[in-house]
Amino acid sequence: MERVKQLAAHFTGPSQGRAALERKSPDDVVITMAIRSPLCKAKKGGFRDARTDELMLEMYKQSIAHSNIDPSLVGDICVGTVLTPDAMYAARSAAIAAGYPDTVPVQVINRFCSSGLMAVTTIANQIRSGQIEIGLAVGVESMSENPDKGGPAQSELISVNPAACDCKERMGWTSENVASDFNITRAEQDEFAATSFQRAEHAQKSRYFVKEIVPFTVFQKDPSTGERKRVVVTEDDGIRPGTTLEGLMKIKSAFPQWGNGTTTGGNASQITDGAAAILLMSRRKAEELGLKILAKHHTTAVAGVPPRIMGVGPVYAIPMALKNSGISSNEVDLYEINEAFASQCVYTIKKLEIPRDKV
């Protein structure tokens, strides 16, 4: 009878509001494990000498250690990654080396900056459709091994289209376009960045990240001998203690040749090496296995925007996600806007009128 009630509710359409969103159902797609590596400065930080496949191997090992399930129960693994120089053979070989049996398949997805999020969505949709019961979503990137060099050369058949030609331009250019097109000032960007650094410093000192960061054992080269030695990295190394608005205002423009030159190394994200993984399954399966449920995945929304202002995607995707979820903006407690430049975050906040204390 309970199952009949659930089906009846499903076919009469989605309920609206936060209470409906928080209602529990055996068919919910839930997260039972969420872990990440430390996030390290590319070329300079703890993972500067670690290869992409080594980061992946360690992420897989940690996922097995923290999942509290037999790895053979995983129905599929989806790895989100962007800047790899060749086909991602390592996605499967590293999984096997880490201890996943060869019965567990692996796929790779690339939607640039949101590749890790799309890995989550892919696994969630597979569970929701009944294709698998349990899945692992992974995100990994080594900017030390595979630095962003901009888009590749285009065929003349493509580059004759101005919008298509914009796809190969650098991200700094898109940040300056957003700032100039939407009147986002240098002062607004620096203010946002200062708050972000200060919050990150407070979070690290208060040990907020302890439950999500897992130690990573990687190789580092001895600068004097070149020998690769094993080291254990346990903390983010890119947080800048003592950052102030006054200090950020003194930093020179990173791209004075574009727009108003308001983007700097202080109000843009660092180039980072790191990895993360989450385990997803139905609520029914999680309860059957006696696992702690951390969160529920409800929906994902994606939106296309002109390549020259690619960072404004959240302005369009957030309302779509809210509509899909049947809730209003003011019912959300916390927004996390994962854009690389303060210009893009500030524009999103202003355009959608999101209270700053919710970001």
Rank of each mutant, 00 (worst) to 15 (best):
K5Q: 11
H66Q: 14
R111L: 14
K5C: 00
A95I: 05
R199Q: 12
Q154S: 03
T234D: 07
K61I: 09
A8M: 12
L7Y: 00
P223I: 03
R230D: 01
G247F: 11
K323M: 01
G17E: 07
I134D: 07
E156F: 11
V79N: 00
S72F: 11
I349E: 04
R308E: 15
G99M: 07
W258P: 05
Q344K: 02
K296V: 11
V312N: 07
K292S: 14
T217K: 14
R356V: 05
F192C: 01
T272H: 15
E54V: 01
L280V: 06
F192Y: 15
A303V: 05
R207C: 10
S175A: 14
C40F: 04
G116I: 06
T121I: 01
I337F: 05
R230Y: 07
D102V: 03
R170T: 02
D222P: 02
N177T: 02
P147K: 03
I35D: 08
S155G: 00
I132K: 09
G17Q: 14
T299Y: 09
D190M: 02
G116F: 04
P314F: 05
K358H: 08
P26K: 06
G99F: 07
K296D: 10
C167T: 15
L291H: 12
V74E: 06
R92C: 05
G80D: 06
L73W: 04
R18K: 15
A164Q: 15
Q154D: 10
V210H: 10
V82D: 13
K44D: 07
L352S: 02
K229A: 12
S63C: 11
N161E: 10
Y100D: 09
F255Y: 15
G130T: 15
D181K: 12
L248E: 13
A254T: 02
R284L: 10
I123A: 01
I96Q: 00
V332D: 10
A34E: 03
E141V: 02
G261S: 13
V29D: 09
G226Y: 00
G130E: 14
N110L: 03
Q131G: 07
L289W: 08
S206P: 10
V231N: 03
M171T: 11
F219A: 13
N146W: 05
S63L: 04
A9C: 09
I278D: 13
G290F: 08
V74N: 06
A65D: 15
A19T: 13
V178Q: 09
M320Y: 01
Q154T: 08
A340G: 04
E176F: 01
S129Y: 09
T12W: 07
